[in-house]
């Protein structure tokens, strides 16, 4: 039964990676930028949820929605202030800017509220129940359900709505999309808004699930989600989800085998192996250009 329990642990961890990875992959898909500030959007989302719950007394779902809204606006703001004017410059310039934005957000938050960690209040009833010998807490089950629902909603937006169609068109060929009358700027902003909202949701879920949040909390999950996005094939939405779950399960298995100190190393070894042997990821088509 231990393995079933470990599998469940891995899926829970993976669902958080997947939610963050979606933002990475969407932004990359549309403007070919690895938005390293995405982990900080996740952190802002987590803190928004924290203040909403702890000081305004909101429940889990209102806090989740508020945090998604705040992050959507925040994500668009980052794009408009920092990335928009670099759209025609080299990709390395945009990448370095992203790292700068990431550090700026981290340390502004530390400047405002200090670096001390915060304990997330208990908003969800937490009862464990036994399913085939696996202890499943109601909290982690709800979190898993929320993550999956958000992914389904995203899939719907991308494939069944007008803005989704525009996003796919811009991703495929921005110039042609422009000629067809698609407002490229708005579409890119919408992509940032949706990706950031998912990161905000992941932030609240992370806080509830892992309790401790601090201003530098976005760094490691952000990097892991980046690995998940690359693993699934960066720019490909289902790839990010699968990449997230695979990474969560791999990390859990590594720990379960008694190599808990190698867990982070395992994630980065995956990144190196993927970049060497299949740079376009599990779902990516091999094209030389992308390397």
């Amino acid at each position: 039964m231990e393995w079933l329990q470990q599998l469940f642990n891995g899926i829970s961890l993976g669902s958080i990676y997947a939610l963050i990875a979606l933002g990475y992959t969407m932004v990359y898909g549309i403007i070919k930028l690895i938005n390293f500030a995405h982990g900080e959007v996740f952190m802002i989302g987590s803190f928004t949820g924290f203040y909403a719950i702890a000081f305004w007394g909101l429940g889990f779902f209102p806090a989740l929605i508020l945090s998604m809204a705040v992050c959507a606006v925040f994500g668009v703001l980052i794009e408009r202030v920092a990335y928009k004017r670099l759209r025609d410059s080299t990709r390395i310039a945009a990448l370095i800017t992203a790292i700068g934005v990431s550090l700026l957000i981290q340390y502004v938050v530390i400047y405002i509220r200090g670096a001390q960690p915060e304990a997330y209040p208990n908003v969800l009833p937490n009862r464990s129940f036994d399913v085939f010998g696996v202890q499943i807490s109601s909290q982690s089950l709800l979190i898993l359900v929320v993550s999956v629902v958000l992914m389904i909603v995203l899939q719907f937006i991308v494939h069944r709505t007008k803005i989704g169609k525009a996003m796919r068109a811009v991703s495929y060929d921005p110039d042609a999309a422009k000629l067809m009358g698609i407002n490229v700027n708005n579409t890119i902003s919408a992509t940032f808004a949706i990706g950031s909202a998912l990161a905000g949701a992941a932030g609240v879920i992370f806080g509830v699930y892992y309790t401790k949040i601090d201003p530098l909390m976005g760094v490691i999950p952000g990097l892991k989600a980046f690995i998940a996005a690359v693993l699934g094939g960066i720019g490909i939405i289902p790839g990010a989800v699968i990449g997230g779950f695979v990474l969560g399960i791999v990390e859990t298995v590594v720990s379960a085998l008694g190599f808990s100190l190698w867990r982070d190393a395992a994630a980065f070894i995956i990144l190196i192996l993927i970049l060497i042997f299949r740079p376009s990821g599990i779902f990516g088509k091999n094209s030389k250009e992308k390397v």
């Binding site: 231990e2 379960a256 808990s260």
Partner: peptide, 13 residues
């Protein structure tokens, strides 16, 4: 490792 947040798999084993 310090600063870690997910201990479920270690605890399960």
């Amino acid at each position: 490792v310090a600063k870690d947040t997910d201990f479920r798999s270690i605890l399960t084993s």
